[in-house]
Amino acid sequence: MLKTTSQVRALTPDDLPELHLLLDRDPLVNLFVRNRVDSTRLQARWLGGQVWGYFEDGVLVSACHAGTNLVPVQATRKALRAFAERVLGDNVRPSSIVGPRDAVLPLWELLEPRWGPARSPRLAQPFMVLDRDSRLTPDPRVRPVLIDEFDTIYPACVAMFTEEVGVDPEAGSRSGYRARVAQLISQGWAFAIIEDGQVLFKTEVGAATPQACQLQGVYVHPDLRGRGIAGPALSAVVRLVRQTVAPVVTLYVNDHNTPARRAYERVGFEHTETFASILL
């Protein structure tokens, strides 16, 4: 019997055609990595990390985004073991491991003995998809955020991030987080209801490809929660982003966040996959 040879190495621009084929096996689930690959063309100075490829007999079988986030792509069990060895050998320490639950949890089992308990393991996160406009009447107040409204929207972004992730996004690099929020506004990827200088609702497109985009940071002002604002507001966002960004809208949510899940279901999002996030 011939022995299968395998290797893990950092991918380069020469690997883009083969990597694109791998990512296109599941373009919605692999949206984040495809966005990073398309926007950086695997140039290290822009990527802020690497994308590793796992090869068997010279064929790209799996991949893994290794930067601030560790994100496995079409990862087999053998690939996960190889990626874990590479992570530990290169002393890579991301802030999170994110992706399909069936890949993230086995990868975390390999890393946890060396890294210790996770700060916040989120073991079941419905990945939800909507490929049409919502049946809910859209809230006409939702609109793209203007760059001169940065100082108005920014505190809501910080509040949402802190509430959701459990850490202050300014703790590491205040300028870095401010730059990211400004970038999303400039791209036309930030949407909100703003009245009298108060952010009532907001969300952003965090990543996009020609096929699909992913919403992040869905926020309703604490004083207004439970009043049915999120559904019509998200309906408006879906309509806007399908017109201007991509035809399919995705997001993922913590399984225990019942109010958010119900709101997304009312809008029309359907649970198609299950993600997991290990926050470190």
Rank of each mutant, 00 (worst) to 15 (best):
M1Y: 08
M1T: 13
K3V: 05
S6K: 14
R9C: 10
L11D: 04
T12E: 06
T12V: 00
L16W: 01
E18Q: 02
H20A: 13
D26W: 01
D26Y: 05
V37E: 04
Q43T: 14
W46S: 13
L47D: 01
V51R: 00
G53T: 01
G53S: 01
D57Y: 02
D57G: 02
V59N: 10
V59E: 11
G67T: 02
T68L: 12
V71P: 05
P72G: 02
P72Q: 07
A75S: 08
T76D: 03
R77M: 08
R77G: 13
L80C: 10
A82H: 06
R86I: 06
N91M: 09
N91A: 15
P94A: 02
I97D: 00
I97P: 06
V98Y: 00
G99K: 03
R101V: 01
L105S: 11
E109R: 15
P113L: 05
R114G: 07
R114N: 11
W115V: 07
G116A: 10
A118H: 06
R119Y: 03
P121N: 08
R122K: 11
L123H: 12
Q125V: 04
Q125H: 12
D131E: 14
D131T: 03
R135E: 14
R135K: 14
L136R: 15
T137E: 12
T137Q: 10
P140S: 14
P144N: 05
D148Q: 10
E149S: 12
I153N: 09
Y154D: 03
Y154L: 12
P155V: 09
P155S: 07
C157W: 04
F161H: 10
E163S: 15
D168W: 11
D168R: 01
P169Y: 07
S173D: 15
S173M: 01
S175W: 10
G176F: 08
R178G: 07
A179W: 08
R180K: 14
V181Y: 03
A182H: 07
A182E: 06
Q187K: 15
G188D: 05
W189F: 13
I193Q: 11
I193N: 05
D196Q: 15
F201C: 00
V205M: 03
A207G: 02
A207C: 08
A208R: 13
T209D: 02
P210A: 03
Q211E: 11
C213L: 10
Q216G: 12
G217F: 03
H221G: 08
P222S: 03
L224K: 15
R225P: 06
G226N: 07
R227C: 03
G228I: 14
I229R: 04
A230H: 10
G231E: 01
P232C: 04
S235G: 15
S235I: 00
R239G: 11
R239L: 10
R239K: 15
R242P: 13
R242S: 08
V245C: 08
V249S: 11
N257G: 07
N257I: 01
T258G: 11
R262A: 09
A263E: 11
A263N: 12
A263D: 06
E265N: 10
G268A: 04
G268T: 07
F269I: 04
E270D: 09
H271R: 15
H271Q: 14
F275T: 01
